[in-house]
Amino acid sequence: MKILGTITILLCGGLLIFFTSDFPDFGDPKSPASIHLSPYFIEHTLEDTAVPNIVTSVLADYRSYDTMFETTVILTAGLACFLLLRIPTKEVTRRYYLHEPTGVTLRFDGDRYPKGSNVFKRIDSNWVPYDIIINFTCRLLIHFIQIFALYVVAHGHYSPGGGFQGGVVIGASIILFAISSNLRASIKRLGEKAAAIFTATGVFIYAGTGALCMVIGEHFLNYSFLAPLLGTDRIMARSHGIFIVEIGVAVAVMAVMIWIYYNLSSAGKQDEGL
Protein backbone atom coordinates (compact mmCIF):
# COMPACT_ATOMS: atom_id res chain seq x y z
CA MET A 1 0.00 0.00 0.00
CA LYS A 2 2.77 2.40 0.92
CA ILE A 3 4.72 1.80 -2.27
CA LEU A 4 1.59 2.00 -4.40
CA GLY A 5 0.62 5.18 -2.58
CA THR A 6 4.04 6.72 -3.10
CA ILE A 7 4.04 5.95 -6.81
CA THR A 8 0.53 7.34 -7.31
CA ILE A 9 1.37 10.45 -5.39
CA LEU A 10 4.62 11.08 -7.23
CA LEU A 11 2.81 10.66 -10.54
CA CYS A 12 -0.04 12.96 -9.51
CA GLY A 13 2.39 15.52 -8.12
CA GLY A 14 4.50 15.48 -11.27
CA LEU A 15 1.40 15.92 -13.39
CA LEU A 16 0.15 18.78 -11.25
CA ILE A 17 3.52 20.54 -11.36
CA PHE A 18 3.65 20.03 -15.12
CA PHE A 19 0.25 21.68 -15.50
CA THR A 20 1.36 24.73 -13.51
CA SER A 21 3.64 25.72 -16.42
CA ASP A 22 0.57 27.01 -18.24
CA PHE A 23 -0.59 29.13 -15.29
CA PRO A 24 -0.48 32.89 -15.36
CA ASP A 25 2.49 34.07 -13.30
CA PHE A 26 2.01 34.55 -9.60
CA GLY A 27 0.67 38.05 -9.06
CA ASP A 28 0.09 38.72 -12.74
CA PRO A 29 -2.41 41.61 -12.87
CA LYS A 30 -3.46 40.60 -16.40
CA SER A 31 -4.54 37.04 -15.53
CA PRO A 32 -8.16 36.13 -16.34
CA ALA A 33 -8.96 35.78 -12.67
CA SER A 34 -7.94 39.40 -12.10
CA ILE A 35 -9.65 40.99 -15.09
CA HIS A 36 -12.90 39.12 -15.64
CA LEU A 37 -15.09 39.38 -12.57
CA SER A 38 -13.15 40.82 -9.69
CA PRO A 39 -12.83 44.41 -11.02
CA TYR A 40 -16.62 44.69 -10.77
CA PHE A 41 -16.50 43.95 -7.06
CA ILE A 42 -13.63 46.34 -6.43
CA GLU A 43 -15.09 49.21 -8.40
CA HIS A 44 -18.72 48.89 -7.36
CA THR A 45 -18.63 47.83 -3.74
CA LEU A 46 -18.96 51.38 -2.47
CA GLU A 47 -21.77 52.44 -4.79
CA ASP A 48 -23.64 49.15 -4.35
CA THR A 49 -23.27 48.47 -0.66
CA ALA A 50 -21.31 51.32 0.93
CA VAL A 51 -18.92 48.79 2.47
CA PRO A 52 -15.21 49.56 1.92
CA ASN A 53 -14.07 46.06 2.87
CA ILE A 54 -14.63 44.24 -0.41
CA VAL A 55 -14.25 40.81 1.14
CA THR A 56 -17.10 41.60 3.51
CA SER A 57 -19.34 42.96 0.79
CA VAL A 58 -18.72 40.00 -1.51
CA LEU A 59 -19.05 37.53 1.35
CA ALA A 60 -22.25 38.86 2.84
CA ASP A 61 -23.93 40.49 -0.13
CA TYR A 62 -22.87 39.48 -3.64
CA ARG A 63 -22.28 35.90 -2.57
CA SER A 64 -24.34 35.99 0.61
CA TYR A 65 -26.11 32.82 -0.37
CA ASP A 66 -22.83 30.89 -0.14
CA THR A 67 -22.21 32.32 3.28
CA MET A 68 -25.64 31.34 4.49
CA PHE A 69 -24.80 27.76 3.64
CA GLU A 70 -21.37 28.17 5.17
CA THR A 71 -23.20 28.90 8.42
CA THR A 72 -25.43 25.92 7.74
CA VAL A 73 -22.37 23.70 7.22
CA ILE A 74 -21.16 24.37 10.74
CA LEU A 75 -24.66 23.87 12.10
CA THR A 76 -24.58 20.51 10.32
CA ALA A 77 -21.21 19.70 11.89
CA GLY A 78 -22.48 20.61 15.35
CA LEU A 79 -25.56 18.45 14.92
CA ALA A 80 -23.46 15.63 13.46
CA CYS A 81 -21.06 15.59 16.43
CA PHE A 82 -24.02 15.66 18.79
CA LEU A 83 -25.83 12.86 16.99
CA LEU A 84 -22.73 10.68 16.77
CA LEU A 85 -21.22 11.18 20.20
CA ARG A 86 -23.63 12.42 22.82
CA ILE A 87 -24.58 10.00 25.55
CA PRO A 88 -26.80 11.12 28.42
CA THR A 89 -24.79 12.33 31.41
CA LYS A 90 -26.99 10.18 33.67
CA GLU A 91 -25.36 7.05 32.29
CA VAL A 92 -21.93 8.12 33.56
CA THR A 93 -21.72 6.61 37.01
CA ARG A 94 -18.12 6.84 38.21
CA ARG A 95 -17.09 10.13 39.74
CA TYR A 96 -14.22 11.46 41.86
CA TYR A 97 -14.54 13.83 44.77
CA LEU A 98 -11.90 15.69 46.77
CA HIS A 99 -12.46 16.04 50.49
CA GLU A 100 -11.06 19.51 50.91
CA PRO A 101 -10.15 19.59 54.63
CA THR A 102 -8.02 16.45 54.35
CA GLY A 103 -7.11 16.40 50.63
CA VAL A 104 -8.30 12.82 50.32
CA THR A 105 -9.72 11.82 46.93
CA LEU A 106 -12.70 9.50 46.91
CA ARG A 107 -14.18 7.49 44.07
CA PHE A 108 -17.94 7.04 43.95
CA ASP A 109 -19.65 4.36 41.90
CA GLY A 110 -23.38 4.41 41.32
CA ASP A 111 -25.22 7.62 42.10
CA ARG A 112 -24.49 8.08 45.82
CA TYR A 113 -22.72 11.38 45.36
CA PRO A 114 -22.33 13.88 48.19
CA LYS A 115 -24.65 16.42 46.62
CA GLY A 116 -24.65 19.93 48.03
CA SER A 117 -21.81 19.19 50.42
CA ASN A 118 -19.50 21.98 51.57
CA VAL A 119 -16.44 19.84 52.08
CA PHE A 120 -16.51 17.63 48.97
CA LYS A 121 -15.41 19.09 45.66
CA ARG A 122 -16.01 17.31 42.35
CA ILE A 123 -12.78 16.70 40.40
CA ASP A 124 -11.90 15.13 37.06
CA SER A 125 -10.38 11.65 36.90
CA ASN A 126 -7.22 13.13 35.40
CA TRP A 127 -7.26 16.08 37.79
CA VAL A 128 -3.98 17.86 38.41
CA PRO A 129 -3.67 20.19 41.42
CA TYR A 130 -2.08 23.65 41.51
CA ASP A 131 -3.31 25.18 38.27
CA ILE A 132 -3.83 28.56 39.92
CA ILE A 133 -1.47 30.55 37.66
CA ILE A 134 -2.96 29.30 34.43
CA ASN A 135 -6.43 29.75 35.83
CA PHE A 136 -5.79 33.32 36.94
CA THR A 137 -4.01 34.40 33.75
CA CYS A 138 -6.74 33.01 31.58
CA ARG A 139 -9.44 34.67 33.65
CA LEU A 140 -7.65 37.99 33.13
CA LEU A 141 -7.20 37.47 29.42
CA ILE A 142 -10.64 36.18 28.49
CA HIS A 143 -12.38 39.57 28.91
CA PHE A 144 -9.95 41.29 26.60
CA ILE A 145 -10.20 38.48 24.06
CA GLN A 146 -13.97 38.81 24.04
CA ILE A 147 -13.91 42.59 23.70
CA PHE A 148 -11.48 42.23 20.83
CA ALA A 149 -13.82 39.68 19.25
CA LEU A 150 -16.73 42.10 19.43
CA TYR A 151 -14.53 44.72 17.79
CA VAL A 152 -13.68 42.28 15.00
CA VAL A 153 -17.36 41.53 14.41
CA ALA A 154 -18.44 45.15 14.50
CA HIS A 155 -15.58 46.44 12.38
CA GLY A 156 -15.87 43.92 9.58
CA HIS A 157 -17.14 46.65 7.26
CA TYR A 158 -14.00 48.75 7.51
CA SER A 159 -11.12 46.49 8.42
CA PRO A 160 -10.21 42.82 8.14
CA GLY A 161 -12.73 40.94 10.19
CA GLY A 162 -16.36 40.05 10.25
CA GLY A 163 -18.80 37.61 11.73
CA PHE A 164 -16.88 34.42 11.15
CA GLN A 165 -13.56 35.69 12.50
CA GLY A 166 -15.13 37.38 15.51
CA GLY A 167 -17.28 34.37 16.27
CA VAL A 168 -14.26 32.10 16.22
CA VAL A 169 -12.42 34.39 18.66
CA ILE A 170 -15.34 34.44 21.12
CA GLY A 171 -15.67 30.69 20.83
CA ALA A 172 -11.94 30.29 21.43
CA SER A 173 -12.14 32.46 24.54
CA ILE A 174 -14.78 30.20 26.05
CA ILE A 175 -12.82 27.09 25.06
CA LEU A 176 -9.79 28.68 26.74
CA PHE A 177 -11.87 29.06 29.87
CA ALA A 178 -12.92 25.42 29.68
CA ILE A 179 -9.29 24.34 29.28
CA SER A 180 -7.94 26.55 32.04
CA SER A 181 -10.52 25.61 34.67
CA ASN A 182 -12.53 22.58 33.68
CA LEU A 183 -15.31 21.48 31.38
CA ARG A 184 -18.00 21.51 34.06
CA ALA A 185 -17.30 25.11 35.03
CA SER A 186 -17.67 26.10 31.42
CA ILE A 187 -20.84 24.08 30.91
CA LYS A 188 -22.31 25.71 34.02
CA ARG A 189 -21.87 29.14 32.39
CA LEU A 190 -22.86 28.19 28.86
CA GLY A 191 -24.65 24.89 28.72
CA GLU A 192 -24.98 22.58 25.79
CA LYS A 193 -28.61 23.48 25.30
CA ALA A 194 -27.71 27.17 25.13
CA ALA A 195 -24.95 26.42 22.64
CA ALA A 196 -27.30 24.43 20.43
CA ILE A 197 -30.00 27.06 20.57
CA PHE A 198 -27.48 29.83 19.86
CA THR A 199 -26.27 27.91 16.83
CA ALA A 200 -29.76 27.51 15.45
CA THR A 201 -30.50 31.15 16.29
CA GLY A 202 -27.43 32.32 14.40
CA VAL A 203 -28.43 30.46 11.26
CA PHE A 204 -31.99 31.63 11.78
CA ILE A 205 -30.91 35.28 11.93
CA TYR A 206 -29.17 34.82 8.60
CA ALA A 207 -31.82 32.80 6.81
CA GLY A 208 -34.62 34.80 8.44
CA THR A 209 -33.16 38.05 7.13
CA GLY A 210 -33.07 36.45 3.71
CA ALA A 211 -36.66 35.29 3.95
CA LEU A 212 -37.77 38.71 5.21
CA CYS A 213 -36.21 40.30 2.13
CA MET A 214 -38.05 37.76 0.02
CA VAL A 215 -41.38 38.42 1.71
CA ILE A 216 -41.32 42.21 1.47
CA GLY A 217 -39.23 42.42 -1.69
CA GLU A 218 -38.56 40.05 -4.48
CA HIS A 219 -35.28 38.19 -3.96
CA PHE A 220 -33.97 36.04 -1.19
CA LEU A 221 -31.32 37.97 0.79
CA ASN A 222 -31.77 41.17 -1.25
CA TYR A 223 -31.20 43.53 1.67
CA SER A 224 -32.12 46.67 -0.24
CA PHE A 225 -35.78 45.84 0.36
CA LEU A 226 -35.17 46.22 4.07
CA ALA A 227 -34.68 49.96 3.55
CA PRO A 228 -38.18 50.98 4.77
CA LEU A 229 -37.77 48.85 7.90
CA LEU A 230 -34.33 50.19 8.70
CA GLY A 231 -35.24 53.74 7.78
CA THR A 232 -32.38 54.32 5.34
CA ASP A 233 -31.83 54.38 1.60
CA ARG A 234 -31.38 51.19 -0.39
CA ILE A 235 -27.59 51.27 -0.42
CA MET A 236 -27.22 51.78 3.30
CA ALA A 237 -29.87 49.09 3.81
CA ARG A 238 -27.44 46.70 2.16
CA SER A 239 -24.70 47.80 4.53
CA HIS A 240 -26.96 47.30 7.53
CA GLY A 241 -28.23 44.00 6.17
CA ILE A 242 -24.64 42.79 5.92
CA PHE A 243 -24.12 43.74 9.56
CA ILE A 244 -27.23 41.84 10.66
CA VAL A 245 -26.19 38.65 8.92
CA GLU A 246 -22.62 39.02 10.20
CA ILE A 247 -24.03 38.98 13.72
CA GLY A 248 -25.90 35.81 12.81
CA VAL A 249 -22.69 34.23 11.54
CA ALA A 250 -20.81 35.29 14.67
CA VAL A 251 -23.43 33.81 17.00
CA ALA A 252 -23.61 30.57 15.07
CA VAL A 253 -19.84 30.12 14.75
CA MET A 254 -19.24 30.99 18.40
CA ALA A 255 -21.84 28.56 19.66
CA VAL A 256 -20.97 25.72 17.35
CA MET A 257 -17.25 25.89 18.22
CA ILE A 258 -18.18 25.49 21.88
CA TRP A 259 -20.73 22.79 21.20
CA ILE A 260 -18.33 20.71 19.13
CA TYR A 261 -15.61 21.22 21.74
CA TYR A 262 -17.87 20.00 24.54
CA ASN A 263 -18.75 16.87 22.65
CA LEU A 264 -15.28 16.07 21.34
CA SER A 265 -13.34 16.75 24.53
CA SER A 266 -15.57 14.59 26.70
CA ALA A 267 -16.38 11.95 24.05
CA GLY A 268 -20.02 12.95 24.34
CA LYS A 269 -20.37 12.48 28.09
CA GLN A 270 -20.06 16.18 28.90
CA ASP A 271 -19.24 15.19 32.43
CA GLU A 272 -15.53 15.75 32.49
CA GLY A 273 -12.94 16.40 29.86
CA LEU A 274 -9.98 18.54 28.95
Binding site: F41, D61, S64, Y65, D66, F220, N222
Partner: peptide, 13 residues
Protein backbone atom coordinates in the same frame (compact mmCIF):
# COMPACT_ATOMS: atom_id res chain seq x y z
CA UNK B 1 -33.41 31.97 -13.36
CA UNK B 2 -33.52 33.13 -9.78
CA UNK B 3 -31.05 35.75 -8.60
CA UNK B 4 -29.93 35.27 -5.04
CA UNK B 5 -29.60 38.62 -3.26
CA UNK B 6 -30.77 40.27 -6.47
CA UNK B 7 -27.44 40.13 -8.28
CA UNK B 8 -27.38 39.02 -11.91
CA UNK B 9 -25.43 36.07 -13.21
CA UNK B 10 -21.66 36.37 -13.18
CA UNK B 11 -21.54 38.73 -10.17
CA UNK B 12 -24.00 36.99 -7.90
CA UNK B 13 -25.21 33.45 -7.42
Amino acid sequence: EYRMAGWAAPVGI
